[in-house]
Design a protein around this nucleic acid. Structure first.
Lengths: 106, 106
DNA sequence: TGTTATTATGTCAGATATGACATAATATGA
DNA sequence: TCATATTATGTCATATCTGACATAATAACA
């Protein structure tokens, strides 16, 4: 199983041990992945809350539908920079970003 | 945007050479840069609080002193991903990251 | 069912970020 | 002052990320 799929499963709620155990990552790397996943989830929620398709959001940020899908999937090829740019494009404030990062769950 | 913030961005080397260029910075891009600067400041504070030299922190994250200097300077070639990895290496929690992102200044 | 919209996955050339290095600038302490 | 530690700046080969594209999978709805 590749890393992208593992992260996706983790994001979707497969609770097979801790992220560190399941992904065989250091605590710091696990925490890093967790930050990405929280931002990913926040992005999806905000996009849907605005009734935007991935394609529509992609146009707003001059990206592509496939990349938005990867952003929301927590794909390893998506940087936190890109996630934050996308979130800001949905109107997220600094406080919104902070809440997403601190959020401990759904 | 106020003069203080403009100078803050200019001092850090973002593409704000002329006033006209600066005015072309979209609100989203300005907000993005602000996030980076907040994380940069947080990193420097945490590193100093732990009495670590840039070189010592660099070794912890398998990077280089010069890059740590750029991280703390808010250099445009430094990604938020790298800043967050560095912050996590200093023991920052998700809550610490959230506070840094939400922080409205000194 | 079929038709259409939306989302997911895989790939790749070009763009951007990275660590490492040299070296300059600045700080610290005798 | 001098010596040394620390931080800043510039550069570059390599690594990683990005938008775009094709296409597969799934959802929505008649």
């Amino acid at each position: 199983m590749n890393t992208a799929k593992r992260k996706r499963l983790e994001a979707v709620g497969w609770n097979v041990g801790s992220a560190a155990d399941f992904l065989e990552l250091s605590p710091e790397e696990a925490a890093f992945v967790e930050v990405k996943l929280r931002l990913s989830e926040s992005l999806r929620k905000r996009r849907k809350g605005q009734k935007l398709s991935q394609d529509a959001l992609a146009r707003k940020i001059r990206s592509s539908q496939s990349r938005v899908a990867k952003m929301e999937a927590g794909d390893p090829t998506v940087s936190i920079d890109l996630l934050i740019r996308a979130l800001l494009a949905t109107g997220a404030t600094h406080r919104d970003l902070a809440r997403a990062v601190a959020s401990s769950g759904k």
